[in-house]
């Protein structure tokens, strides 16, 4: 077969299909069980007193093991956000949607999730939000147990109250 006749081959498809298990470890197990079995958000206190959610296998600042479990609220404050307008492979929501950093009441650093229940252009820093959970029989071992966060109706938080969390 002459190359000239058909042109050079510039791309071949060679699919890679590998299946992995996740090794959750004790800390992630605590977090995932809370989501599925109790509709609660569990974090852990670090040796210097901060509450991490999801809990980490070790304190990122000191490298020491984490301490006791702490339940944090499913209400929080949007610290910052962006509006996603771009279609991306694997996406489950239809753009546009809001991707936000939310500092849950009782946590020391933000959790990332999406915001719904408002027009996309109404999203703002300082907005108070609460979790919208899946029905009890649809809860899973994943953050997907929370559909999204939505406005809680509380007044916006002052910039000074969350600016350390940006």
């Amino acid at each position: 077969m002459s190359e000239d006749a058909q042109g050079p081959i510039t791309m071949i498809r060679t699919p890679v299909d590998l299946e992995y298990n996740i090794s959750a470890g004790p800390d992630l197990t605590l977090f995932l069980r809370g989501l599925k079995e109790e509709k609660k958000l569990y974090g852990r206190r670090s040796p210097n007193g901060d509450v991490y959610i999801p809990p980490r296998g070790a304190c990122p600042v000191t490298g020491q093991p984490m301490l006791e479990e702490v339940e944090v609220s499913d209400h929080g404050t949007v610290t910052t956000f962006c509006l996603i307008n771009i279609p991306i492979e694997g996406q489950e929501l239809k753009p546009p949607y809001v991707f936000a950093a939310i500092i849950l009441d009782g946590a020391s650093l933000p959790l990332f999730h999406m915001i719904a229940g408002i027009a996309a252009d109404e999203a703002r820093m300082g907005m108070r939000v609460k979790a919208n959970w899946k029905p009890d029989d649809e809860l899973v071992l994943s953050l997907e147990s929370i559909n999204y966060f939505e406005p809680s109706g509380e007044p916006d938080a002052d910039y000074d109250s969350y600016k350390e969390h940006l």
Binding site: I22, A24, L28, F31, L32, P54, T79, T80, F81, C82, I84, I86, I88, E89, G90, Q91, E92, L93, Y97, F99, A100, A101, F112, H113, M114, M125, V140, L141, S142, L143, E144, I146, L166
Partner: peptide, 20 residues
């Protein structure tokens, strides 16, 4: 399982920092 069901790409990670 420990991340929300959002695929945002790198821009989705950095855009909130830009806003801040």
């Amino acid at each position: 399982p420990f991340q929300p069901p959002i695929t945002s790409g790198a821009g989705g990670y950095f855009a909130p920092l830009i806003r801040a």
